[in-house]
Computed example of a mutant assay.
Amino acid sequence: MIFTGQCRCAAVTYQLDVDALPAIYACHCAHCQTWSGSAFALHALLPAQALQVVGPVTHYAYDVDGQRAEHQLCERCHTRISNTTTAAPGLRVLRVGTLDDSPALQPVAHIWVTRKQPWLSLPDDVPSWPYSPTPEAFAQALTPPAP
Rank of each mutant, 00 (worst) to 15 (best):
F3N: 11
F3D: 12
T4R: 11
R8D: 15
A10E: 15
A10V: 15
V12W: 02
T13Y: 14
T13D: 11
Q15T: 13
L16E: 07
D17H: 12
V18G: 03
A20N: 15
A26C: 02
A30T: 14
T34K: 12
W35A: 10
A39H: 07
F40A: 01
L42M: 11
L42V: 05
A44Q: 00
L46V: 00
L46Q: 04
Q49V: 06
A50Q: 05
V54L: 13
G55T: 09
G55M: 08
V57Q: 02
V57G: 07
D63I: 07
D63T: 12
V64T: 11
V64L: 14
Q67C: 07
A69R: 13
H71W: 12
Q72K: 13
C74Q: 03
C74K: 08
R76N: 12
R76T: 15
N83H: 14
N83I: 05
G90Y: 08
L91Q: 07
V93K: 11
L94N: 03
R95T: 14
D101M: 14
S102P: 12
A104P: 11
P107S: 05
H110W: 13
W112R: 01
V113C: 05
T114W: 07
R115H: 09
Q117G: 13
Q117V: 14
P123K: 02
P123S: 04
D124H: 05
D125V: 00
S128Y: 04
W129V: 00
W129D: 05
Y131M: 15
S132T: 09
S132F: 15
A137G: 03
P147A: 11
